[in-house]
Every structure is written in C-alpha cells, then in structure tokens.
C-alpha cells in the first residue's frame, strides 16, 4: 500500500489522541506539559502534510508560529510550575486548587 495523505492524517490523529489521554489521566503537571507538546506536534504534522500535498508552502510558515508559541508556553508554564512547587511542595494538579472557588 503506497503511503498517501490519509496515512499522515491518521498518524497525526493518533498522536493527538495519545496526547489527550495523557492530559486527562496524568496528574503530574510536567507530564501534562509533555502531552500538550505531543498535541502541538500532531497539529504541526497535519499542517506540513497538507502543505506538501497541496504544493503550497504557507502551511510550513504556520508551523513556525506554532513552534514559537509552543516555546513561549513551555517557558512560562514551567516557570509557573516551579513557582507553585516552591510554595506548595507538590506538582500534582489535583492538589493545586487555589484558583478554584
């Protein structure tokens, strides 16, 4: 079977679903971050696949901006996690409920 566009889409869908499973089941904030990166990667994969099959390079420019946002998100998120760990001595997201009302 030759590899066609839907193979890439299926791969990226499965990768996204794995990321969602991780975000919903894991309780460690850092693992949740890793799973968010998995989801961002799967979206990037979709963009690149469509860009290749449509012969249009615009999708790859979008991937750049997604990567920039991912880097900013990881930096700020980890800073928040470290700051929370300093105050509450835990990164379990069930224990960090100070924003709940």
């Amino acid at each position: 079977m030759p590899v066609t566009l839907d193979y890439y889409l299926l791969l990226s869908a499965v990768l996204f679903t794995i990321g969602v499973v991780g975000v919903l089941t894991r309780r460690n904030a850092i693992v949740v971050f890793m799973c968010i990166e998995l989801m961002l990667n799967s979206v990037n994969l979709t963009l690149v696949a469509f860009s290749a099959y449509l012969g249009d390079i615009t999708g790859q420019v979008l991937v750049f901006f997604v990567m920039a946002v991912a880097a900013a998100e990881a930096a700020v998120g980890l800073a928040i996690v470290i700051s929370l760990f300093r105050n509450k001595q835990t990164v379990n997201i069930d224990k960090i409920n100070i924003l709940k009302w």
């Binding site: 904030a29 850092i30 971050f33 990166e37 990667n41 991912a70 880097a71 990881a74 930096a75 760990f85």
Partner: peptide
C-alpha cells in the same frame, strides 16, 4: 528546526522542570 527548538530547547527545559520539582 524541530530538532533545534524541541530537542535543544523545550525538552531541556522539561528536564530542568522535572529535576527542580
């Protein structure tokens, strides 16, 4: 770029986060 940014930047940041928390 994927290897540079994700492996060289974000993953190292994650590992620092793991070690620090």
């Amino acid at each position: 770029t994927q290897i540079l940014i994700y492996v060289g930047g974000i993953l190292v940041l994650m590992l620092f986060g793991v070690m620090l928390t």
